[in-house]
Design a protein around this nucleic acid. Structure first.
Ligand SMILES: NC(=O)c1ccc[n+]([C@@H]2O[C@H](COP(=O)([O-])OP(=O)(O)OC[C@H]3O[C@@H](n4cnc5c(N)ncnc54)[C@H](O)[C@@H]3O)[C@@H](O)[C@H]2O)c1
Ligand SMILES: NC(=O)c1ccc[n+]([C@@H]2O[C@H](COP(=O)([O-])OP(=O)(O)OC[C@H]3O[C@@H](n4cnc5c(N)ncnc54)[C@H](O)[C@@H]3O)[C@@H](O)[C@H]2O)c1
Lengths: 225, 225
DNA sequence: AGGCGCTTGTGAACCCGTGCACAAATCGCG
DNA sequence: CGCGATTTGTGCACGGGTTCACAAGCGCCT
């Protein structure tokens, strides 16, 4: 499930706080989900808590990390060392969550050779050999949208089977390759939609009729203090 | 629906390409979704295409932009001008998608006053007055996780009712405030899970038994060339 | 040792999103 | 003017995710 990383983060927080066991209720609150959902998710991966007491934090962390394939530190390639690429390359949060940025690539010769965070930017033409040498299976695209498809093709040709795409465009990849897209403008537009809905609602204080029957789903967070 | 922004982006691309009308099939392909789903989405917002011909691109853009509340250019506040915050502040994609970064905030006095992209960083204590003056309803949090809840509280107190959170933590906000979270490490971990699943599958070539019954949903992209 | 309270695991109902398939409608052309 | 090609809009069934609710199991305290 896509919620396992959230559980994992919450568990690490609990482990740092010194907790040894957690109840499903407590972990659900820390991860911001329903407790029944969490129990069902955890049961699906065969992890057994002990009734009456809860889950063993350290054991559960191991279970989830194994399920997510984080027992090995995975190497990722970052393509496009521009505005966003710099921030990503300098981000310490990846290393602490099971990943190692193994190589940086760019098409701009002026950027090639630039050292970032102890790593030198390499030219995109080196992608294939470096990916093979470092056994890179995950690629991150932080190039303009116009170049994203070409980069994706190059990544796939280099043996990458999972791609995280920051460019606002749809990628077409062969079967067996997974793509996840992160589009920040889309996130803001969804928030804007909520703003629009809210202001329409306050304009009609009785709430007689909502402006439409739409409901945005996804990464939504249920409110509540 | 959360897919409207995707449709909008695809429509803008089509408009730039000079197309006047689109079939649901064509737009669905450009947005990477099923055509029936797209038609149902569009029918939900009352937009009427003409049968036998398709949808009017310009009209549909207006319809979707109205539904998303993008008729007015919305002002957003960005809090935390660090590694990631710099990239966001310098990103041109927000302006072209209906948003205006109206103010930058940070707690670090060394950063206050720094000009970024024609905007000066202000101290977080100015948030309330600036938000009121600029009528800011959307806030972006790009601070460390430890500070995120405090920043969220300050944003809410300043009248912000929608928050985009980049810090890896759950925020608790009062009812009526919407929060969307973007966690890049989570995205990578989901990809890692897919990698793990794929490698387990190839290890058992017959595919007799999948390692578990999990299926990650969400921003997934259906493969296919 | 036995009972009691707490927590997990899960059965089942429910709800919603998804996709198929088709009727209705519109345009272009003869 | 009428017909066929094309495309929208939608009824309906299916599947999966979500939630409630409760039985089963475990530890602790007496
Ligand atoms: N900066 C942000 O905060 C932000 C936010 C959301 C989305 N994005 C998206 O992320 C992408 C990158 O944004 P940015 O602001 O970093 O842009 P940028 O122009 O600063 O950086 C793009 C980099 O990609 C490199 N590049 C171009 N073509 C390439 C190719 N074929 N192969 C390899 N490298 C290539 C360029 O040399 C440049 O260094 C864009 O698609 C943008 O829409 C950025
Ligand atoms: N850099 C990335 O690529 C990246 C990727 C994913 C997630 N993130 C997350 O984004 C957040 C920011 O990352 P970063 O790399 O930019 O960190 P950073 O340390 O470079 O920047 C954080 C900024 O927030 C400011 N800040 C701290 N406390 C504040 C407060 N109370 N009010 C206002 N400002 C405050 C700091 O002064 C600093 O300028 C982190 O939570 C990180 O986990 C970053």
């Amino acid at each position: 499930m896509a919620r396992l990383p959230e559980y994992l983060r919450a568990l690490h927080n609990l482990a740092e706080a010194g907790d040894d066991t957690v109840s499903s209720e407590g972990l659900a609150a820390a991860a911001g989900v329903n407790s029944a959902k969490l129990r069902k998710d955890l049961s699906h991966l065969g992890s057994y808590g002990t009734r009456g007491v809860g889950y063993d934090v350290a054991l559960l962390i191991d279970q989830i990390e194994f399920t997510l394939g984080l027992t090995q530190r995975r190497a990722v390639a970052l393509v496009g060392v521009g505005n966003l690429g710099h921030a990503l390359a300098g981000y310490a949060g990846f290393a602490s969550r099971g990943f190692r940025i193994a190589a940086l690539f760019d098409a701009d010769q002026a950027r090639v050779g630039e050292p970032i965070n102890g790593l030198n930017v390499r030219h995109i033409s080196d992608l294939a050999v470096v990916a093979a040498a470092e056994s890179i299976a995950i690629g991150v695209i932080a190039t303009p949208a116009a170049a994203a498809q070409d980069v994706a093709d190059a990544l796939v040709a280099a043996g990458v089977t999972s791609i995280l795409n920051f460019a606002p465009c749809v990628l077409s990849v062969p079967e067996g390759v997974d793509v996840r897209k992160v589009d920040l403008a889309v996130e803001l537009q969804i928030l804007s939609f909520h703003e629009h809905r809210k202001s329409s609602l306050t304009a009609l204080p009785g709430g007689l009729s909502s402006p439409n029957g739409l409901a945005a789903t996804g990464t939504e967070e249920a409110v509540g203090s």
